[in-house]
Amino acid sequence: MSDPNGKHDELIHPVARPFLWLDSGWLKSSMIWIFLVATLGFVAVDFFHHRHEYVDLAEFYGFYAMWGFGAFVLAVMVGWFVIRGLLGREEDYWDGDSSDEEGQS
């Protein structure tokens, strides 16, 4: 059922065909700029409109964008270096059988 080697386009679902551009290289390389522009766009709103927040700190220009960026980077770095670095083990660590880690019906 799975073919990891080929690109059997005839097997692609008809509904998915108009959306194959989602897999294109230019889109993947452009994502960083798309998100950057979108983020800056919403940050720019803060310069024209004062947001009223329950927490004073959140009224700072672009607070949420910075917090979101920082939180994401922190989560990834701690996950990568602390969790995987210190707590990561081989797949057969528990019972010596890696296939057992996945439930089947």
Binding site: F35, F42, H49, A58, Y64, A65, W67, G68, F69, G70
Partner: peptide
């Protein structure tokens, strides 16, 4: 605006 800033900032980080 605040929520979109948070989500887009995180997506940009990704």
């Amino acid at each position: 605006v605040g929520q979109m800033q948070l989500l887009l900032g995180a997506m940009f980080a990704f």
